[in-house]
Amino acid sequence: MPPPPPVSDLTTHLGFWLRTVSNHVSHAFAAKIAEKGVTVAEWTVMRTLYGKDPMSPSRLADEMGMTRGAITKLADRLIGKALVRRTADPQDGRAQTLALTDRGTALVPDLAKLADQNDAETFGHLLPAERDVLEQSLKQIVAHRRITALPIA
């Protein structure tokens, strides 16, 4: 039997290293905010709503690059936790809007501090110039690939 053809090693791919770091950052952050009773996806919705006027689920879906169905499911979970409220749109009684509750608004800065802490734990050892190069490189990839959906998991 002939030997199998040579193939590249996993570690020769940039995607391998990106995924390794991404998994670590995501799991560490998820554990931190789980203590506050929210998921990463819920945090992303809350941060998107933070400081904004009530918005329709469809607008929120567009801003986040998600489906309306996904937004509805996340909104339902956040409403159940009393972090988001759904109300009738004052200009169109048939439409609905989503907004943070007072409790949700108060929680966002605490969650943002955890995000900042998580970022510092993973990237804080980088020199400012190294961090800038990494950030610009990742942003360039996002722009080149036309990635618009917010990461939620």
Rank of each mutant, 00 (worst) to 15 (best):
P3K: 07
P3E: 14
V7D: 09
S8H: 04
S8T: 04
L10A: 13
T11L: 05
T12F: 08
H13E: 03
H13I: 06
L14T: 00
L14R: 00
L18G: 02
R19P: 04
N23P: 01
V25Y: 05
S26L: 01
H27D: 15
F29L: 15
A30D: 02
A31G: 06
A34C: 12
G37P: 01
G37E: 12
V45R: 01
V45M: 13
M46G: 09
M46F: 07
R47E: 09
R47Q: 12
R47Y: 05
L49K: 00
Y50P: 02
K52N: 04
K52D: 05
K52R: 03
P54Y: 11
M55K: 09
S56Y: 08
P57H: 00
S58P: 05
R59E: 15
R59M: 15
R59W: 13
R59G: 10
D62Q: 11
M64G: 07
G65N: 08
G65H: 00
R68P: 01
G69E: 12
G69P: 07
K73R: 14
L74A: 12
L74V: 12
L74N: 06
L74K: 05
D76L: 15
L78M: 13
L78Q: 07
L78S: 03
I79H: 02
I79P: 04
A82N: 09
V84K: 06
V84A: 13
R85F: 06
D89A: 15
D92K: 12
R94T: 14
R94N: 12
R94H: 09
A95P: 03
A95K: 12
Q96K: 12
Q96E: 13
L98Y: 11
A99F: 08
A99C: 15
A99T: 09
L100Q: 01
R103N: 08
R103L: 07
G104K: 00
A106H: 10
L107A: 03
P109E: 10
L111T: 09
L111M: 08
L111K: 06
L111E: 04
A112Y: 04
K113W: 08
A115T: 10
A115E: 13
A115M: 14
N118K: 06
N118A: 08
D119P: 05
A120T: 10
A120C: 11
E121S: 06
T122D: 00
T122W: 03
G124L: 11
H125D: 01
H125E: 12
H125Y: 04
H125T: 09
H125N: 12
L126M: 14
L127Q: 09
L127G: 06
L134P: 06
E135P: 03
Q136H: 11
Q136M: 14
Q136C: 11
K139S: 14
K139P: 01
Q140K: 13
V142Y: 02
V142E: 04
V142S: 07
V142A: 03
V142R: 05
A143D: 14
H144V: 13
R145A: 15
R145G: 11
R146F: 13
T148A: 10
A149C: 05
L150H: 08
L150T: 11
P151L: 04
P151Y: 03
P151H: 03
P151K: 07
I152W: 05
I152H: 08
A153Q: 02
